[in-house]
Design a binder for these strands. Structure first.
Lengths: 215, 215
DNA sequence: GTCTATACCGTGATAGAC
DNA sequence: GTCTATCACGGTATAGAC
C-alpha cells in the first residue's frame, strides 16, 4: 500500500486535503473533492493512504512533529538565554506563540491551512480527545513546568485553567473565521497574525500573573 | 408546511439535532440519525423544517434570543448598580459569562448542547461568518461600548483583539472537549463550568487592563 | 394539521480489474 | 498507478393514514 516517499501527486493530495478539511471538517469533504482539487484520480488517495480517516490522520501528523520541534527549540532557547532564574511568563508565552506566527507568515499557505485544521480538531468534542493529546500534550507539559517555575505560588488547577484560556484564544486565532473583521468594522483582520499575537501575548501573560500569583 | 406551534415530536427533533450537530458538526450528522434519536419518521424533519440547512438554522436560532436576553439583562443590571461611573471590567465580563454558567448548570442538558453548538459555529471558518455575526454581534457591540467606558485610554483595535481572546477562551470552554481533563491528570474537568468561569473572569479582566490601559 | 411509509435518485467510499 | 464497477447511504419528494 504505497511507500512513504514523496511523490508529487501524493503531496498534492495532502495539500488539498489539508485545506479542505480545515475549512469544512472531516465529514464536510469528500475524497472526490480532494482528488479533483489535486487533479488526480479518486482512487489514488486510497492507494496512498487507505481509508478516508487514515488520510485525515496523515494530514494531521505531517506537520505536527515539525511544529513541536520549532516550539521546543524556541522554549529551550529562551530558557538558555534566561539562565538560572528562568524565563519570564512573557518569554515563555512568546516562545509558545511566535513559532506559529513564523509558520503562518511563510509564503507557504499550507501552514495556515494546517493550523486552521489544528483549530478545528482542538475545538471539536469528537476529534479533540482523539487527536490532540497524543500529538501535543507532551510538549505542553514542558511549557506548564516552565510556567510553574516562573509562577511558584501557583496552584496546579490555576495553571491548567490559564493554559486552557491561552489555548482557546489561540485556537480561535488559528481558525481564521473573519468574525473580528466584521465586528470591528475592518479595524482588525483575522489575517493579521502579527497583530493577533502582539495583543495575545501581553493579554495572556497578565492573565497568568493575576490568576497564578496567589497560592 | 407546518406552523411554528410546539408539538412534542417537533421539539424532540430539535433537541436531538442540537446534541448531534454540536458533537459532529453539520455534515457529520444525517437526518436519519436525528430521526432515529427522536424516534420519529425520517420525513417528519423535512415536514417541520424543510431542508437540512433550515433545520440547522432553526436549532441555532431557537435559544439565541433567550441567551441574548439574559445577557442583556445582566449587563443592564450591573450598569444600573454601578451608577454614573459605570461598572468595572470585572463586572462587565462577569455579566457576559455568568448567564452561560447559569444556563449550563440548569438540569436541562439542552443548554449544554446548544452552547457546544455555538462553539462549533463560532470556531468554524465556514459557519462562523455566516451565522455568528447576525445573531450575536449587536449585543457584543454593547459590551464593547461598556468596556470602552471602563477603559477610556483603550485603542479600538486593542478592545477588539481583547474581545477576540475572551471569545476564544469561552468558545473552547463551551466546546467541552475534555482535553483539560487529560492534560491536568484529572485535576481540572471540562464539565466544571464554575471553575472555568472563576478562572476565566480574573484572567480576562487582567488581560483587558494590561492591553487596554495604554493609549 | 400531524405524521408515516416508501420510493427516487444522486453521491460517496472502496474493491477489484487492468 | 489508473480506471471502473459496486453497493450502501443520504437528502428529499410524494402519497396517503390518522
Amino acid at each position: 500500500m504505497a511507500q512513504k516517499r514523496a511523490s508529487p501527486k501524493r503531496e498534492r493530495i495532502l495539500d488539498v486535503a489539508e485545506e479542505l478539511f480545515a475549512l469544512h471538517g472531516f465529514d464536510g469533504v469528500t475524497i472526490r473533492q480532494i482528488a479533483a482539487g489535486a487533479e488526480v484520480d479518486v482512487a489514488l488517495a486510497s492507494y496512498h493512504f487507505g481509508k478516508k480517516l487514515e488520510l485525515f490522520q496523515a494530514v494531521f501528523e505531517r506537520r505536527a512533529m515539525l511544529l513541536n520541534n520549532s516550539r521546543r527549540d524556541a522554549l529551550h532557547a529562551c530558557q538558555k538565554e534566561a539562565g538560572k532564574k528562568g524565563p519570564t511568563v512573557e518569554q515563555i508565552i512568546e516562545s509558545f506563540l511566535r513559532p506559529l506566527e513564523l509558520a503562518q507568515e511563510t509564503g507557504d499557505a499550507g501552514w495556515r491551512h494546517y493550523l486552521a485544521l489544528v483549530a478545528y480538531v482542538n475545538n471539536s468534542p469528537y476529534w479533540g480527545p482523539r487527536m490532540m493529546s497524543s500529538a501535543f500534550d507532551p510538549l505542553v507539559g514542558e511549557y506548564i513546568e516552565a510556567l510553574r517555575k516562573a509562577l511558584p505560588k501557583a496552584r496546579d488547577e490555576s495553571l491548567y485553567w490559564c493554559y486552557h484560556n491561552l489555548s482557546g484564544a489561540l485556537t480561535l486565532t488559528l481558525a481564521q473565521t473573519g468574525r473580528i473583521d466584521r465586528l470591528s468594522g475592518g479595524k482588525c483582520l483575522s489575517s493579521d497574525f502579527q497583530a493577533a499575537y502582539d495583543h495575545m501575548i501581553p493579554f495572556v501573560a497578565a492573565g497568568f500573573r493575576e490568576v497564578c500569583n496567589t497560592p
